[in-house]
Design a protein around this nucleic acid. Sequence first.
DNA 1: CTGTTAGCGCCTTCAA
DNA 2: TTGAAGGCGCTAACAG
Lengths: 341, 341
Amino acid sequence: MNMKEIAQLAGVTAATVSNAINGTGNVSEKKRKEIMEIIEKEGYSPNRFAKSLRTKESNTIGIMVEDITAFQTPRIINGINNYVEKQGYAVILNNMSLLEKTGNHYSELSSYQSAISKSIKLFNKTQIDGLVYVAMHDRDVMELIPKLSIPIVLVYCYDTSKKNYYVTYDNMDVIADVAEYLVKHGHEKIGVIKGAEDSLPSQKRLRSFITQLEKAGKELKEEYIFPGAWEFGDGVKAYERFKQLEEKPTAIFAMNDLMATGFMDAALNDGVRIPEDVSVIGFDNRQECRFTRPRLTTVDIPLEKMGEKAGQVLLDLISGKTPENRKVILPCEFLEKNSVI
Amino acid sequence: MNMKEIAQLAGVTAATVSNAINGTGNVSEKKRKEIMEIIEKEGYSPNRFAKSLRTKESNTIGIMVEDITAFQTPRIINGINNYVEKQGYAVILNNMSLLEKTGNHYSELSSYQSAISKSIKLFNKTQIDGLVYVAMHDRDVMELIPKLSIPIVLVYCYDTSKKNYYVTYDNMDVIADVAEYLVKHGHEKIGVIKGAEDSLPSQKRLRSFITQLEKAGKELKEEYIFPGAWEFGDGVKAYERFKQLEEKPTAIFAMNDLMATGFMDAALNDGVRIPEDVSVIGFDNRQECRFTRPRLTTVDIPLEKMGEKAGQVLLDLISGKTPENRKVILPCEFLEKNSVI
DNA sequence: CTGTTAGCGCCTTCAA
DNA sequence: TTGAAGGCGCTAACAG
């Protein structure tokens, strides 16, 4: 069934049918209704290839994800999908599977670059109207993203060159909440397990944490700052250090759930009680850490909303609107569970 | 840049370029090489809308997932993607978000049906060549899947009407492994927490489990069969029953990780030691249950492989080949961790 | 308010 | 072995 046939049934020409469907030109209300009824009855929908060929618009966006099995990715995709579908856009997905290829060696630029250029080449062939890049680590991807002829929006990462639009979450405010929460619970000696040394989110979180403690008239002792690099094992190592301390912190803020869980696991193995002997807070609200004992108090990142916002910014860009800011920063939510006393 | 322009650069006509690209017709090797070089140099790729309009093939498949945040979904998508991309197909994704809409009320057919028909309507407009349906519960979806004009392959579910092709995993063999493993570890009194009453996988697992115990000369006592419906809370309830028993099982096989974790959690709260007092085995290898203490011995479902296989079957169907069987059943892997002694 | 016309980029005869 | 011509289904510009 094509437009011409519909037109014949309606006793008009294809152009009028087209106008009726798209609300373009002038079609009398009566004719429009007639036409729409026939379309409904016949179950007709316009051939999108013909339409796209003609209009140069595909009404399709691409999502390239660093890794679909990374914990953030599905929720972000979900958010993007929800938004753009409502606007009549389809979504083409490409998974670069970078967890397999690079693991956590974020610095292996060349693997990233080759995967990215491969993915972009793929999208090039598909005539999409815009692209969302979903990272699996919150970091600067400036060097990774080539110049494209279509709009692109980055999610879960940032771009210090300010060339690209990106959507991310706020570290500062929620970390202040975390610090305040620990202070309110009467903790004086508080420790932090940091993220990777060169990670900006890690630095920001540390800064915000210290600032908030200072507001409460407390300081973060140098020896209570444990190095880490986001992995479970780093939490275990932090516990080993913790154990050696004469005067131990009564609370630990680990910059992600994996390290928090590693710390708790090692501590519990050692007979340390949580939260009675030491309280623990994580960050990420990862599924893997949902059933720790005790349940881990943590921070939820607004992943769906980040996806929705990215979709919105992208569609704005596609339709020629210029969003106000290059970056969108969404607030996180503190989740109180049972790992702090 | 279009085909005509490439043709001009090569001093031929568009028809020859088309033949060179697609390996159709007869083009001298020399000309073909020349043309391909120019294409490479100019970074040209054919307009897929024009091509699809002409050939009636989109080289695109759709994936409709019941819920992208369900634990199986990302790994399955991953598998499908990996396979079909290599064959030059793009993937359009649609997420029905059924976890939000129906939760675990699998029986709410009407919610399912409206979501599915909406999704299919959406795909109808996109002129895809084939469709993969990814379920979030392993169940009969016969009533849900309407007749389509394009091939469809179901994953993580089945179709007793045998109308559709589907790819799923094997319950019987791996459950025999589970039972055998418990017997080998010297367990005499073994309990089972069942899945939902009307669930075929649950029934199959029970049957296989009993069969294997019988082979070892053991029986599964009626009072050691605990009802359940796949949820964390069902594991907790099972523990309450367990607790009342005069003579308690020394090992529990929960038909999924959530119930296993619920059981463990309740037991540990009660001061019961795992695995010293009671051993536990789960099923699914869910991320949420990765950091239980002790780590949960469980069964991994070959989700990526199921996705790959589904992609393969679908592309076969698209290209007119008829796969041998309506169903593909892939083996699971038993994962030994630390929750059994 | 509706119809006519032309052409988007590609592939497929058919002819040379 | 290559080229010319036509048309896939749709929309935009213009004419009536």
